[in-house]
Amino acid sequence: MKDDFKNKTVIITGASAGVGAATARTFAQLGANLVLVARGQTALDVITEELAEITSVINIAMDINDASANENLLITAAQTFGSVDVLINNAGLHHRGDVTLNQASDLAKMVDVNLRAPIQLSCLILPYLKQAGGGAIVNVGSLAGRTPLQGAATYAATKAGLRAFTYSLADELQNTGIYVGVVSPGPIDTGFIMSEIDQVEDIVFSQPMSTAQQVADAIVSVARGEKTEISLPKVSGWLTTISYLFPTLRKALRPALYRKGGKMKAQYKKRNLDSPN
Rank of each mutant, 00 (worst) to 15 (best):
R271A: 15
I137A: 11
A61L: 12
I219P: 04
R250L: 14
G20Y: 00
G82F: 06
M1Q: 09
D4V: 03
L44P: 05
S221Q: 09
G97E: 06
L93P: 01
P127H: 02
Y128D: 08
L253W: 08
S56N: 13
V35N: 10
V37P: 10
N70G: 15
S243N: 13
E229L: 02
I75H: 04
F192M: 12
E71L: 07
A91M: 05
I197H: 00
L169G: 04
D217R: 04
A21F: 02
A252Q: 12
I64Q: 05
E172N: 10
R96W: 13
L101P: 00
A61R: 09
I88T: 02
S231E: 10
F205I: 05
K8Y: 08
V182Q: 09
N65D: 07
G135C: 11
I58G: 11
T23E: 06
A38R: 01
G92V: 09
I242K: 07
V204N: 07
V222I: 08
T154P: 03
M1F: 06
V180T: 07
I242W: 03
A52Q: 15
Q150E: 12
M194Y: 10
V37W: 08
P127N: 05
D63H: 03
K6L: 06
I119R: 01
Q103P: 00
V19H: 07
N272S: 15
R271I: 13
N277Q: 15
P118C: 01
R163K: 08
N139K: 12
Y268D: 08
I219Y: 00
N139E: 12
V46S: 08
G145T: 09
K263N: 14
K2Q: 13
L74C: 12
A61S: 14
V200Q: 10
T166C: 04
G40V: 01
V19E: 12
I219H: 01
I219C: 02
V222F: 02
T176M: 13
N139C: 13
L232I: 14
G18R: 08
F246N: 11
T80D: 10
L249N: 01
G181E: 06
P247H: 07
Q41N: 07
Y179L: 02
H95R: 14
V99C: 04
T154C: 13
G186H: 00
V86Y: 00
D45F: 09
A32Y: 07
A144I: 11
L121Y: 08
T240W: 03
K227Y: 03
K251G: 05
F5R: 04
G177K: 10
L115H: 07
F5E: 05
V84N: 04
V99L: 11
V113L: 13
T240V: 11
Y244P: 08
I75V: 10
M110T: 14
Q79A: 15
V222G: 02
N277I: 15
N277D: 15
R25N: 13
N90T: 01
R39H: 07
K270Q: 11
S142H: 04
K270T: 10
Y155W: 08
A67D: 11
A69I: 05
